[in-house]
Amino acid sequence: MVLAAPAVLGLAFLVLPLVGLLVRAPWATLPQRLVAPGVGQALRLSLVCATSATAISLLLGVPLAWLLARTALPGRRVVRALVTVPLVLPPVVGGVALLLAFGRRGVIGQYLDAAFGVSLPFTTAGVVVAEAFVAMPFLVIAVEGALRGADPRYEEAAATLGASRWLTFRRVTLPAVAPGIAAGTVLCWARALGEFGATITFAGNFPGTTQTMPLAVYLALETDPDSAAVLSLMLLTVSVVILVSLRERWIGASA
């Protein structure tokens, strides 16, 4: 009872802007705006990039979370603080930082460019890198939390049964923290999908290669706020549909 009032206020606070978007959306011209050239392209690019960034985050982030949660890594506090840096960094600054690291003249980028002729800025790969940079901490933190909550003695039990560390990780640790990984993955994907600042700064904006939905929305706002509202609604709808259907699946699988 004591919690009900602030809970309702909190929900209203989160939902009202969405209501504003729905109320003010130009419903009359919506269909023609949806099929406008470039909209599908931006949406597809957004989904592809957010999914790729999430895949990379899983591949690198889960082992990183394991390292933070399960090993006596020297300077672990510092490492954990470093992992959360992209969370506090304004995304635009993150984008500049990425340029300074992986740009054509960047600390690492100059060698990539010289040795392989690879240059990340202004490429779709660059979008994925920017999104992964901003979104991976969400995954790492969620998974690390899950790992800390999981009883490490199950891993010991697996070891006494003859399981190598890798087998233990795959067959015991991962299944135990699967809900945490799922939650982290959703957070990571959602954050990557909405990513704007780091993407436009690091990867630039070009339709078809680097212009994701948030970038398209931002530029539409410059000239045609109605279009921006439509694009935002579309991004919102697609992401909600995907998340809800995935959730159904997970719940269905665990029941």
């Binding site: 500049v96 340029l99 300074l100 740009g103 003249r105 800025p121 202004f122 436009i200 700064t201 990867a203 630039g204 904006n205 070009f206 339709p207 680097t210 212009q211 970038l215 931002y218 530029l219």
Partner: peptide, 16 residues
């Protein structure tokens, strides 16, 4: 290669 959001961002790309 890119259509930047504003003139300062465009210029930053040259500077970097």
């Amino acid at each position: 290669v890119t259509l930047e959001q504003d003139v300062k961002a465009t210029l930053t790309k040259v500077q970097l």
